[in-house]
Design a protein around this nucleic acid. Sequence first.
DNA 1: CCCTGATTCGC
DNA 2: GCGAATCAGG
Length: 202
Amino acid sequence: MSWTDERVETLKRMWSEGQSASAIAKELGGVTRNAVIGKVHRLGLSNRNDEPEAAPAPAPEPVADKKIDRKPAPAAEPARPEPQPEVAAVPADPAPEEPVSQPVFTPVPRRPIVPAGQPLPPQPSANEISPETLASVREVEKRARKLTLMELTERTCKWPIGDPATEKFWFCGLPSQAGKPYCEAHVSVAFQPMSSRRDRRR
DNA sequence: CCCTGATTCGC
DNA sequence: GCGAATCAGG
């Protein structure tokens, strides 16, 4: 495969979208992520920042006859946001945040909103999940790999376990179902078929 | 071990 | 110019 204009265009587009080199390589086909990265560098767009502002400040230093020893160059780091893969798909909210206290001033600015200690796992609160399934899930969670956010991959179950406000928090991490964000057990509780309950005929 | 981008260097 | 191998890191 060669870098046709079209392929380069796709590369540029995806790269600017924050896609990873491997994802781009996969999309293009016929190339490895190394090839993509190599091309990216050759095209000079390794820096995924195109902020209109942030003028590099030319600072020509017109005066030449000033024997001032300049320091190597401050080189200010713009600090890029680095688009992290969204984990927003996390179901439920085990620890409901204290909804902003009244505009009235309160002597006690904050209270220990964290009961902590309790499992509180039944995420999909609403729906009815068969006790068997639930028990099965609880069982599976005992074998959770307890991964941290960073350790999650496309192939690990991203089901959160525990209370994010405490140390007792981690992600399931067991092998996820192909294409799904969760392992088999968690997929079963995450994706309810709209009418899990005995459909009442009209 | 999974993955990420960065760099090197023979082709 | 190309990209595999390698490096450095989360």
